[in-house]
């Protein structure tokens, strides 16, 4: 029973990361810099929301308290969300959106690769499906980092500024607390520390090509996966949850 609770919490982290980032990205819909990129970002947003549905449905099933994916998505307040702070950060300019996405995507690829060997068969199946999507997302955001960094003076400056602003949020992706360690012991989860070397290598390689400098690790912010969020999450949830809360059971 206790392990089911740990597993529930872990699945929330996975689902909440995907859903919040997917929602953030969907805010670009209709506002993309060009039509083609608008469609690309909406596609990726939909991939992420699709992954979130699978994670949250599995979380609800694991919890066994009569909740479902929609209850978890639309009827939880900020302190019950378990996403990392990185994904709830505002879109900012296009460089901020792509840097946030890139830092996340590189981690997601390594994470899903690891989780596709999970002893929880549903986790393994969702991870295997999500891995293919994440590899494409990483390619998309990575190419933009290179294009902006190695582009014009302005695009380089904006990409570097975004990297400097968001770097301190990336460390939380790799935090291993007691909950993760317990699930790692059962080979359900993979330890963040194990993902870090591959993440470092991929990020360094792309930053090198982009002629961007890797920021120093002298500051970090975290707390999202423990339910301690930035002020931005509340506004996001207010918009995302308004309709099902104002019109319970609404269908279209």
């Amino acid at each position: 029973m206790k392990d089911d609770n740990a597993r529930f919490e872990y699945l929330l982290r996975l689902g909440d990361n995907s859903l919040i980032l997917g929602h953030r990205l969907s805010e670009w819909c209709g506002h993309g810099p060009v039509l083609e990129e608008d469609i690309a970002m909406s596609n990726i947003a939909l991939d992420l929301v699709g992954q979130a549905r699978l994670w949250l449905a599995h979380a609800a099933e694991t919890e066994g308290a009569g909740r479902d994916e929609d209850t978890l998505a639309f009827h939880r307040d900020a302190f019950d969300w378990r996403n990392v702070l990185l994904v709830e950060q505002p879109n900012g300019d296009f460089a901020h959106t792509m840097v946030r996405q890139f830092l996340f995507d590189v981690h997601a690829v390594e994470l899903y690769r690891g989780l596709s060997g999970s002893t929880d068969e549903t986790v393994a199946a969702i991870a295997a499906k999500s891995l293919k999507e994440a590899i494409y997302h990483r390619r998309h955001s990575g190419q933009w980092i290179i294009r902006m960094g190695d582009g014009t003076e302005e695009s380089h400056a904006r990409a570097q500024a975004a990297l400097d602003d968001l770097w301190g949020y990336s460390h939380e992706l790799f935090d291993d607390d007691a909950l993760v360690e317990r699930l790692v012991a059962d080979s359900i989860a993979v330890p963040g520390a194990e993902l870090k070397p591959a993440w470092d290598a991929e990020v360094d390689q792309v930053l090198g090509q982009a002629t961007l400098s890797r920021p120093s690790d002298d500051w970090r912010v975290d707390g999202g996966s423990q339910g301690v969020h930035s002020e931005h999450l509340g506004y996001l949830l207010a918009e995302m949850q308004f309709l099902p809360r104002a019109y319970p059971g609404a269908k279209w």
């Binding site: 083609e36 990129e37 469609i39 690309a40 596609n43 494409y136 390619r139 998309h140 190419q143 294009r147």
Partner: peptide, 11 residues
């Protein structure tokens, strides 16, 4: 070309 490939895939 790379962006064209990705956009084509998405569109």
């Amino acid at each position: 070309g790379e962006m064209a490939q990705q956009n084509a895939r998405d569109v």
